[in-house]
Design a protein around this nucleic acid. Sequence first.
DNA 1: CATATTTGTTGTCTGTGGCAACATATAGTC
DNA 2: GACTATATGTTGCCACAGACAACAAATATG
Lengths: 413, 413
Amino acid sequence: MLENIPSDVGRAEQGLGRNRDHVRQHNLSTILTLLHREGALSRSVLTQRTSLNRSTISDLVSELESLGLATEAPTVSGGGAGRPSILVRPSDSVVAFAVAIDIDAISVAAIGLSGHKISLKKRRTPDAPAVGTAVVVIRDLISQLKSELGAGIRIAGVGVAVPGQVRQEDGLVRQADFLNWREAHLAERLENEINLPVFIDNDARLGLRAEHEFGSGRDLTDVVYLIGRSAGVGGGAIVGGRPLSGTSGYGGDLGLIRISEGPLIQLSGHPGTLADLIQRDELLDATSLSDADDPTLLDYVRDHPSSRIRRVITAQVDALALGISSLINLFNPQAVILAGYLSILHALDAERLRERISLSALSHSLDDVHIIAVPVSSSRLLIGAAELPFGPLLNAPGVFTFRNPTSLRAISD
Amino acid sequence: MLENIPSDVGRAEQGLGRNRDHVRQHNLSTILTLLHREGALSRSVLTQRTSLNRSTISDLVSELESLGLATEAPTVSGGGAGRPSILVRPSDSVVAFAVAIDIDAISVAAIGLSGHKISLKKRRTPDAPAVGTAVVVIRDLISQLKSELGAGIRIAGVGVAVPGQVRQEDGLVRQADFLNWREAHLAERLENEINLPVFIDNDARLGLRAEHEFGSGRDLTDVVYLIGRSAGVGGGAIVGGRPLSGTSGYGGDLGLIRISEGPLIQLSGHPGTLADLIQRDELLDATSLSDADDPTLLDYVRDHPSSRIRRVITAQVDALALGISSLINLFNPQAVILAGYLSILHALDAERLRERISLSALSHSLDDVHIIAVPVSSSRLLIGAAELPFGPLLNAPGVFTFRNPTSLRAISD
DNA sequence: CATATTTGTTGTCTGTGGCAACATATAGTC
DNA sequence: GACTATATGTTGCCACAGACAACAAATATG
């Protein structure tokens, strides 16, 4: 009864040809995706954005409504002369569960199709959780969320953010050093447990995805993303509007970019790379703090200047600049987004960072790029994770089938 | 009368929606592109590959024929039972001119729509040509080729390979150090001269393009490409089936990947990068050769081992390995293609290269990748360049208009 | 209250691909 | 060599998505 992994509808097309059904699916998908990204749009705006005919939009929207994927709000006036247009919004009776697995906690959120968080559950774990523990915790939290949501809610699936290398085709966690996981069949086990399609991806890439679709990377086609988190420096890239994932899904881990030769012996980490040379703990050790979240750390460092702290920051900023300039040369992006701990480094010495970057980046590519620092909120990451199960739905709204909700309800009993 | 740059039909779509015409264009494009890539295909194969109906294929093919873009060869038998299928081939009465500008020569070739070279003209230049010189030489060679081709030939346009950074939107050569060009309006000037749509791109990227569409990178979705040429180390990447180009087109120059810190002062080159640390001349200097092409150099080095040569090779192989491993970690590709001088390095010590790569690449990504060395032939590069003008034709065969051929004929008079 | 403007709705039309039946051409078998 | 099985091209008809035009509805402006 269970299928191993949901067929990712509409992702890989069978044939190269296109027929009428494809057109319909494409247009439904386009509209629903627009609504999902923007939250709500009037029909007239949809007409403009898609350059489809008014009557076609009308038809498509009513199909989305009958599919229960969109609802119409009463007309909104005040937009100038003429008949006011009907507002269409994605239905928040369709949700996805987003999961973030961190070293010390597991969070699960219900995210509505409009891209907004509906509710959140978080459970702290004493240590990095084992795979089995994670499965149980996730199942419980989802079960709680589900009963809170009540009936009449349809669930697209579950998306999980893991700090490690994940094989995309089956959601196998190949290696997650900070969790001490190897070859963990998380997707499969979770799917057996909760009977929902489960997708897994690297957390940094999901952070980028959220940033790209809803945050400061909106509407950009080429983005480089670097994030400093408890589990080291990670990264991702948007290339030509699409995420860089590589053949199996290990690609785009830009924290692994090399900036110095490093020892040529394979250690546990990756010597000579950005991830190796920028360690949050190094700065933390230079303070008298034992543990601190990013805002606390930033405040402390600002209030307690010392030459040791200064040295650490300078060295890390320089390393970051070398990495970023190399990435700018490789990707010629519109933006470099720094998140988490790296945005702290940016806040501490943006000027030096900029200077150092311009020393070794191509001037033409440099002209195109904006360096953007964003604080990382765990909810951003969760929103990115929810995009995973929403993907198949958004790609083919007409043929997507929600998985058996009755057997789901049984879990919470 | 002249338009500045041909509108790249079908590249950037106006609206997100899709209607009937889009379907037709898409299917025509799909079929013509398949024919272009494969050289010739039977109708039945087209049916299978596109998963369109036989009758539809029949209709589409006859439209391509009436557009003069495809011809039908007599049926070919011997393929098992059943009525033999009609072979369809791209019409070689449609050609593109491909230009390669090198330090010491300019080559122009006529490439047929089937992707095969029809004829080639090469003119040596004493030094790196100035822009004006290049324009004149190219015009003359094209004019010669055109008169050889005779009447009844339609020309899709001109594609130029330049060793430097090229802005894609208008073909402005921003910087080509080895030619001593800055902000050279090559496309515009050439277009005024010969009244054909002119496209320009970085030569390494075009080498990759040829390799990806016709060579050892066929059917791969993620490829990393590095080429050693007279004008230093260049590179390119295919990400998710599409070329990595960045916002303005400077992206993908993988020769600029950093492998050591290098001096932090901006010199003329890019210290610490692959392009900086792998210099063909360094090996050449270690020999008694004054000048040599790649095969000659390889033979010499094999026949005259010396400790100095050995040192140079080892250092360069190690540098290459560091660069490649970093790229493997970033891109998780199916193949790393080494071309030109780099394929010599590979030939000289493939084992050490492999070993060194596996020291610093992620094991999971390493499992996916093949290291492939190809000799670089200038014709490969030209075939890549021809893809530029073929692009708009292949993307929208139904609406592509060939530019006024009468004024063209006037040139050769 | 009249007019201009914009948008939603409805019915009709166009054109593209699907489909089924038939025609055609080969290989294999007796 | 005739017959059968198989595969492909051809033809006429159909289904259906989106375009279009005419009309209705709802607002702003004077």
